[in-house]
Design a protein around this nucleic acid. Structure first.
Lengths: 223, 223, 223, 223
DNA sequence: GATGAATGAGTCTTCATTCAT
DNA sequence: TATGAATGAAGACTCATTCAT
């Protein structure tokens, strides 16, 4: 899991020098970090702002200096974490002359590494859970996260078809079909899996490897 | 949507407006019905028991005659609705002499009709959202719902392989891969989809049809 | 402990014959019995009428056929149990030609046997505890219970003085002083004592015996 | 009544009407004060925490900043008030070379002044009333309050006997006998007395004076 | 800016009381 | 009469939010 992020608790472990100097700038991020963990873990309503503050190493009142209320904090958590995430992912995918099959492999691998394996993937669960109460958030998620990512996958497939590398398929239908296993597995790992006996799921490598092989077979021009 | 249940609101319709109706037998079901709707819609914590009661056409206190507290109501909602659901689904699948490919088609179609298209599918979203707070529930869901259903799919595939109808594949990995699109779509329809412009998703028939064709192609013995 | 009263549970043990016949008449007493136990044990506010009803072997609604509400039940418990108690005690004391010292001994012994050792003594604790909320009850208790009993004691002492058997004392002050040990001990046995390790208190016989000896010495005409 | 405490209501008087006063140090004591009054007056169950808070001049929520729940408040009321009370009383009694008879007089007088006449004496009634629901409290009361006080009285008597000042008596039995009038009178003044016409009871001085004279006569070596 | 004491609206839960059966 | 399901007011407790320091 490449997600090397400072745990919320690490707020205290700052380098000896310049303690207060960096505070003001770092605060929002630390709060977002703490809020992300707790919101994903307990859900929006069940998370107490006091806990968020404590996890971020500040007091309850300080939180309100940065976010007007709980809902804004939620929105910030989702938006602030997702945008860079998608950008980072997009950066990894930057086109190459590689064959489309290889690009597909890369797409799945990178998505998992930069998104699925990350704690940010928990946001998907969070958004799904809270969409009833915050439809705006659901729309944002769909527009800014789901669609772009699916767009990338779709374009790879479409290019492969155009180049004759892949056979013709219903791209619009295929993209969600092929994203589902990854997204659901990511959601699962932030919900069901932690509650179940270990080794309940198949190792992720075998999961991804099998998935890729099926997708490629499906796209194969052979018979 | 085949789920023919009386909407919670309908409780008021019949006896016009007589409070003090004694209907001990009907209450639990009506309460569960109302609770399911609200829990799925708003989440556990954000649902007020008074709303549940009102939706069921009773007063706050009545609810406590049947469920000791909010958590027990949640558990009842999950257990009481899921067990019959899985049973119903299992009943639909009852083996036949049909070719395994046809059985696969049936499996997906029936799962969608008896589970995915039902409001009970919202329970999946609910369990995922609350697993952090009620791990017991997550375990129950995994053990009694996920595993059995995946077991059925697995056995169809295994039989197909044994009969030479399908090529050899990694069944353990394939089953979750092939369930994912249906489960995620079911979750989606109880979360993101209702928040987004209509016709955002592909029609379910095309979705299922494409999925089936891909699975069959993947299992095909042809090169 | 001479108090041979049917335990609340015994309501079920009625003689085989005439089950319902005796019901109506017995009900109020059974309810009072149950209420006394629970009120004394848990206090007025902390006692649930449903528990009272169950202990009496009837349903919640039945209770309301006999007592209009919780407060009336309390009043009935106090009045109905106390009046006969005082009457019974008074009956025991019926004057005799015995020497006043002997009459004093009898008074203390009988009070303990017919009042103090009885569960009805718990009513004292109950009235004391609830006097803030039901001053009427406190007044009743003072007027109808405390004063009469103290009156009896006072008249014995006064007669002893008049007869020259006792020395002259401040009777008005002496009576409460000499009742206190018995009353407080009775209260104690319905409150503190049951919570403490056994054998915490002195045996009641030694307690009463010592008390009597002190009173008599105090009244003695010897220097 | 020497108990010089500000009445709960007075909390409002000083800063006229500023809500949001921050007085972390003063709060616990004020809350305890208010709670004592109300618990003693109405009983534990019949006292609403909101009333306690209002009497202390704070809001409902503030109370929970200092006491986790109602039961903890009760325990704090009992413990926090009793410990200093007993200490204060013990301080008053500090031995002297005075004759034991004089020490007895002092004991009774001081007990009444520093305990019995105080509103803290109401705690005895409270503990007695709630012992059924909070046995822990009853045990605490017995161990930390009753026993120590009776111990002091016992030691005075024992010393008097040893010095030949008093005749030999059953000390173990005498101590509760001689404490009873004071304790019961204290309980009475917090329960029955306030409900009855004034001048119902004998003046306390005459009560104490008579009691002392009886005790001394009982201990007297004269025939 | 930062703090955390204080607030009070909001919820769960209980239980005295009512009433259809 | 007797029952016990149903009611709803009341009360314990929580927590988002405010504000004096």
């Amino acid at each position: 899991m490449p997600s090397a992020r400072s745990s919320p608790a690490s707020a205290q472990q700052f380098p000896a020098e310049r303690r207060w100097a960096r505070r003001k700038d770092a605060r929002p991020g630390e709060l977002l970090d703490a809020a992300l963990d707790l919101f994903v873990d307990r859900g929006f309503a069940a998370t107490r702002l006091e806990d968020v503050a404590r996890h971020a190493g500040v007091s309850k009142g300080t939180l309100y200096l940065y976010y007007a209320n709980k809902q804004e904090l939620l929105e910030a958590v989702v938006r602030a974490n997702l945008i860079p995430l998608i950008d980072a992912f997009a950066g990894e995918i930057r086109a190459s002359g590689a064959p489309c099959a290889e690009q597909l492999r890369l797409f799945f691998a990178k998505w998992w590494d930069t998104v699925g394996a990350t704690r940010y993937a928990g946001i998907a669960k969070l958004v799904v859970a809270e969409s009833g109460n915050f439809p705006e958030l659901a729309r944002f998620f769909q527009q800014e996260v789901i669609l772009p990512v699916m767009g990338v996958l779709g374009s790879i497939v479409r290019r492969g078809i155009a180049l004759g590398e892949f056979r013709e398929v219903d791209v619009e239908a295929s993209v969600p079909l092929w994203m589902s296993p990854l997204v659901l597995r990511a959601i699962w790992e932030h919900s069901i899996t932690p509650c179940c006996p270990p080794d309940f799921d198949i190792p992720i490598e075998r999961f991804l490897q099998t998935h890729l092989s099926y997708v490629l077979r499906t796209l194969s021009r052979e018979p």
